[in-house]
């Protein structure tokens, strides 16, 4: 199908965008790479009055790597972050997770911040943001604010972004020095939406575990004093807490079982 008609704003500055969002609110949508939004427009799942193209705004395409981690501007493509040598070195897990995001043809256009804004519950980049304790910086005509991952990703395709705000950047902190990380997901085919995605950071017997695709947003938990003996019970408790949901791809029961099995497998790899 084709998109319903809309006006198209080719923005040149962040102020162009925040000004247009202030006057149009929920009837406007921001587009950068469009790899989620264009499909929704084509299927008429969303019919905005105004589409604001931010892809030509100078300065939003920067990747900054410092001691704290990796900061990614709003128009940085997924393929660009995956290929960025310093970012790969700072947070190796990011590149690993990015290789599961769609296909090369969509990663070449899809942006990192766009995937966060879309907030698919099983998507890899929101999972990474929650696992690493990252944040998103939003701009509006009133100013800027930075929101922690858990406060930003509030549910299925839902974030705490206000209708007058755009994402200007996302920050992925480095894992603690010496920590080991791992990532797993299960999908019907490589590049499909994950049914369940998991990632962890292990430091000795302390573990931070993030789970996507089970609850309606990715969830991270910190587990202390983890061992091969305690883990099955801990993962089982987490699986029941997150409950899962039935859909065309899998049952809630299957999703919980993936936490128990894939989770155990991944954590043992990270802690080995």
């Amino acid at each position: 199908m084709k998109p319903a008609p809309f006006d198209l704003c080719i923005a040149e500055t962040v102020e162009d965008v925040t000004g247009a969002l202030a006057s149009h609110g929920e009837t406007a949508r921001v587009i950068a790479g469009g790899q989620s939004l264009m499909a929704m427009l084509n299927m008429r799942l969303t019919e905005p009055d105004l589409l604001i193209d931010i892809s030509r705004i100078p300065g939003l395409d920067r990747i900054t790597v410092d001691q704290t981690g990796v900061t990614v501007g709003a128009t940085v493509r997924q393929a660009e972050l995956a290929a960025h040598a310093e970012a790969r070195e700072a947070v190796p897990l990011l590149a690993e997770a990015l290789s599961h995001v769609g296909h090369i043809q969509t990663r070449n256009r899809g942006t990192v911040c766009g995937s966060l804004a879309h907030a698919d519950p099983s998507a890899e980049l929101p999972l990474m943001l929650v696992l690493l304790g990252g944040s998103v910086t939003l701009a509006s005509a009133q100013g800027r604010r930075t929101v922690a991952a858990e406060d930003f990703l509030t549910g299925t395709l839902t974030t705490s972004r206000r209708p007058d705000e755009m994402i200007v950047s996302a920050h992925f902190p480095r894992p603690p020095a010496g920590a080991k990380t791992a990532f797993r997901e299960i999908a019907r085919r490589h590049g499909d939406f994950a049914i369940v995605s998991l990632a962890c950071i292990a430091q000795g017997r302390n573990l931070r575990l993030a789970v996507g695709g089970v609850a309606d947003a990715p969830v991270a938990v910190d587990l202390a004093d983890v061992s091969a003996e305690t883990l099955p019970a801990q993962l089982n408790a987490l699986a029941w807490r997150l409950r899962g949901y039935d859909d065309i791809h899998a049952t809630a029961r299957y999703r919980r079982e993936m936490i128990r099995r894939l989770g155990l497998d991944m954590i043992m790899e990270a802690m080995a």
Binding site: L8, I10, G34, Q35, M38, A39, N42, D53, S55, A79, I104, Q105, T106, N108, R109
Partner: peptide, 12 residues
């Protein structure tokens, strides 16, 4: 770069 032309606007 290989991209999907159905997920891109002509204006872009």
């Amino acid at each position: 770069k290989a991209v999907r032309s159905c997920l891109m606007l002509a204006a872009q």
